[in-house]
Design a protein around this nucleic acid. Structure first.
Lengths: 118, 118
DNA sequence: CCAATTGTTCAATAACTTTTGAACTAAGGA
DNA sequence: TCCTTAGTTCAAAAGTTATTGAACAATTGG
């Protein structure tokens, strides 16, 4: 691990809610949840925002304790901090993700282009 | 009812999350949840913010579909839109309220003064 | 070494949000 | 009617967040 992350007990509810209250970040979290266990790099999210802007949003998610970013080579491998979030705020992440699933108005990864197969 | 409220299906997840991602509004929702069924007027929340500022935050909650405000005489009776929120985003409100309960760092109604008995 | 890839940082700007006080409306009671 | 109570509206100021492009690292492959 490389970049600063809050510990589980430093994760703050209003900050997590505010961070998730942005459609771009919600789309990132939703995609991470759909690929849980698979660490993704930033380029997966390039159809949501510019590279610079993604860097900003991913930093917000990391600083809030929603995601973990690990530097591997020139990439950042990004994962959801599900264990920590579930411990701190039981049920919250699941209900947010379930609600986001049902919302077709929300931006989503892989919506603007042809799906690139693994 | 008097003031504009979104219908249940107009309630938007990112807007609800953003609205709840403010400590003052989270305290309002938490208090409403703790007194569920009892309509409260704005003055209950005066230890959280000024009258003008409360008016602003209560409008945000109403416009997001989190609360309902009914004009009765010169008062506004404010209630949580639990049914609509539970229908739209099952489990979300409960997990947010449960998480807020456990957070002693959050502002709360009736924390700065002697409790006024009913 | 050189070039490409991956992502960050910085400064600027644009766009919102929050907070404030003063002025206001509307209802209710004396 | 006049005063009080309850809350809103408005405009201004302050603060915060989001978005952009240009410049910068750091790693990897040729």
């Amino acid at each position: 691990m490389s970049l600063p992350h809050p510990t589980a007990d430093q994760i703050s509810l209003p900050i997590v809610l505010a961070v998730l209250g942005d459609p771009t970040r919600l789309a990132i979290v939703r995609y991470l949840a759909s690929k849980e266990g698979v660490p993704l790099n930033c380029s997966k999210f390039l159809d949501l925002a510019s590279k610079t802007n993604l860097s900003y949003h991913l930093a917000k998610l990391r600083e809030a304790g929603v995601t973990r970013s690990e530097a591997v080579g020139t990439s950042r491998l990004i994962t959801l901090r599900r264990d920590d979030l579930d411990k701190r705020f039981p049920g919250l992440l699941d209900s947010v993700i379930a609600a986001a699933e049902g919302d077709t108005a929300l931006p989503a990864v892989g919506t603007s282009e042809v799906e690139v197969s693994a």
